[in-house]
Design a protein around this nucleic acid. Structure first.
Lengths: 210, 210
DNA sequence: GTCTATACTTCGATAGAC
DNA sequence: GTCTATCGAAGTATAGAC
């Protein structure tokens, strides 16, 4: 490849990252060989090791990227306080937007899929999922519902119960999409998922409104 | 091994089944080798092939066993009709009992775990999960809620929405247990899960009671 | 039905030339 | 930084003796 073409292309390390993510998210980490990654990138497998220590290091890089992207997305904690006074409707809307924003690029969508399918047997991913994608959001929503109750915006139901009521449905939708229907059409799934989520929040709202 | 000991022992085919299930549910299908199964059973790997055509045939046998066990458990359809008149409380109780019954033996618990972790990348298991463990129950619960509305036992909320409200939480609990917390203590998880499920059904009940 | 022996394949990873 | 060449380990599966 001449110099001109090379300057037009992404660096090899980034191409390894992208192709690995593509393959991992489609087939699972174990089912993808280093040879296969190399073939897709267009280099020999031994050249991979000039960029990453081993296969696992590629996975680690992907997870690190995911953590950083998640950390810089979503609503800042301080804004929550101001939003709460506007009532639960606004909050559910912002909440839904936050989750959608987090899968809004093809890259992030692939990593979500990868995290979903590898959680069960990669200890690092599992701990990350439990802590950052389950316990932390539940805790956050509990706090939000608690404040709403204090401000008399909703009925005084146990805020932890409400957090589970709201968030278990989100987890369910993620499960449905990334585990069971990932191959199918994204657009039509998303339409249906949004409709389900709307029904869910409307039901919840109806149940707790003062 | 002499004849007396052999008669006291399970047939080799059953021991292959049991050890395979044990290993698959702990480590995942791909991560278990035929050699490893053979070692646990106490025979050579080549002897496995006298009982099962190949590794995949063992998995198929496990899934078949699971299907049969599921089909013969649970509440018969006809009984539903009679139960509905007793109101939603009774139904939620029976529903919870049904799901618990289905993981009530160590063998069934292991298969649940196996199905949960292999769904993402075994096409047969995925189709089975989607159809029998998700769509069919949702459809069943929709029908139940629909009848309750007709009999004026609950508020006239969209029965499909109610089915999702109820059942997405069940899926969530299964996900939490089999994917995220399987290693941990079953008893203490079960206590917490039952408490969560009780909170959930109480909340739902409160929201839809006439 | 179990054994030994082995064929055959694929994997991750390294050494060293260029 | 990429290549050729190759290693050792591990995998599934089969043939044939007992």
């Amino acid at each position: 490849m001449n110099k001109k073409n090379r300057t037009l292309q992404k660096p090899t390390k980034e191409r390894i990252f992208d192709e690995s993510l593509d393959l991992f998210s489609k087939k699972g980490y174990e089912a993808v060989s280093v040879r296969e990654i190399a073939r897709e990138v267009g280099i020999r497998e031994s050249s991979i090791y000039n960029h990453y220590k081993n296969k696992e290091a590629i996975l680690d890089a992907i997870i690190d990227y995911f953590k950083i992207e998640l950390a810089t997305s979503g609503t800042p904690q301080e804004d929550n306080e101001a939003l709460i006074d506007q009532g639960p409707e606004v909050f559910f809307e912002v909440g839904a937007k936050t989750y959608i924003d987090r899968i809004n690029t093809p890259k992030m969508e692939k990593i979500w899929r990868l995290v979903s399918i590898e959680t069960y047997h990669n200890e690092k991913i599992k701990r990350f999922f439990k802590k950052e994608l389950l316990e932390e959001p539940i805790r956050g929503w509990e706090e939000i519902f608690n404040l709403m109750i204090e401000k008399n915006l909703i009925k005084p139901v146990n805020p932890r119960t409400l957090a589970y009521e709201y968030f278990s449905f989100v987890i369910y939708l993620f499960f449905e999409y990334f585990i069971l229907e990932y191959d199918e059409d994204f657009e039509s799934f998303m339409d249906l998922a949004l409709e389900k989520m709307t029904n869910h929040t409307e039901f919840l709202l109806q149940a707790i409104k003062v």
